[in-house]
C-alpha cells in the first residue's frame, strides 16, 4: 500500500492540508513535498506564522473584528467618527470598506449572515451584541453593509426590525451598477434599484 510507504509525519501533514477548504489529497501531497524539499526554511516560517496567528489574535470585545490588541485599532482610533456604525458580515468586509477610503466610522462584525437555507439564525451571530451596543452607544447612524445576497438581505431585514425602536437612523448600502459593467447584462433587480437611487448631476 502506497500509504504505508510514506513516513507517518509526512502522511500527517498531508492529511492536515487535506482538511483545508479547496485542497484535495493530490494538492495536499504536492504542498507537503514542496515544503519537504524546500531549502529556505519556508516550512519553519509557516509554522511560526501559524502559531503566532493562533496565539496572538482574538476578537475585539467591542466590534468583534479580529485583532491583536483589545480593543482593536479601529475601535481605539479617536480620529474616527464614533457616531457612525457600519455592520458587516465578515472581517474581510472591513478590509474591503477600508480600501474604499470612503468611510471613517466604526464597525461591527457579525461573523456570518442569517440563512433560512442553512438554518443560521440571529443567535448564531453577533446580533445580541450589536443590539446592546446600539442601545448603550451614542450612534446617529447604523449602516447595514451586509452582502447583496439573499442571506445578506435577510440579515439586513432582520436587523432593521430589531433596531427600529432605537432612536437611530438605519441605512442600507445602495445597489447599483459596477464600474466597468454593461447595462445590457445587468439583472432587473440591480437595474431597478440603480434607477430608484439615481442621483442628480
Amino acid at each position: 500500500m502506497a500509504q504505508n510507504v510514506l513516513p507517518r509525519t509526512v502522511q500527517r501533514l498531508i492529511d492536515t492540508f487535506a482538511r483545508l477548504p479547496g485542497i484535495g489529497p493530490k494538492s495536499a501531497s504536492r504542498l507537503t513535498f514542496y515544503l519537504l524539499r524546500d531549502k529556505d526554511n519556508l516550512a519553519l516560517d509557516l509554522a511560526a506564522a501559524l502559531q503566532e496567528m493562533k496565539a496572538n489574535t482574538r476578537l475585539c470585545p467591542v466590534c468583534f473584528n479580529i485583532t491583536e490588541e483589545e480593543p482593536c485599532l479601529i475601535c481605539r482610533d479617536e480620529g474616527r467618527d464614533a457616531t457612525l456604525l457600519c455592520v458587516v458580515e465578515e472581517p474581510l468586509d472591513v478590509v474591503a470598506i477600508e480600501r474604499s477610503r470612503a468611510y471613517n466610522g466604526r464597525y461591527h462584525v457579525l461573523h456570518g449572515a442569517i440563512s433560512p437555507v442553512e438554518g443560521i439564525g440571529p443567535e448564531d451571530l453577533k446580533v445580541a451584541e450589536l443590539v446592546r451596543r446600539v442601545q448603550q452607544g451614542n450612534f446617529r447612524e447604523i449602516i447595514l453593509a451586509t452582502n447583496p445576497t439573499l442571506e445578506g438581505e435577510s440579515t439586513s431585514l432582520y436587523l432593521q426590525r430589531r433596531l427600529m425602536h432605537e432612536k437611530v437612523k438605519i441605512t442600507r448600502l445602495a445597489r447599483g451598477l459596477p464600474v466597468g459593467g454593461d447595462l445590457e447584462y445587468t439583472d432587473e433587480i440591480t437595474l431597478s434599484r440603480a434607477l430608484e437611487g439615481r442621483q442628480e448631476l
Partner: peptide
C-alpha cells in the same frame, strides 16, 4: 426574480 420574497424574512423562509 420573485422580488417580494427578498424583502420579507418570513416569505424568504417559506421559499427556502
Amino acid at each position: 426574480a420573485y422580488a417580494p420574497l427578498r424583502a420579507d424574512l418570513v416569505r424568504v423562509t417559506y421559499a427556502a
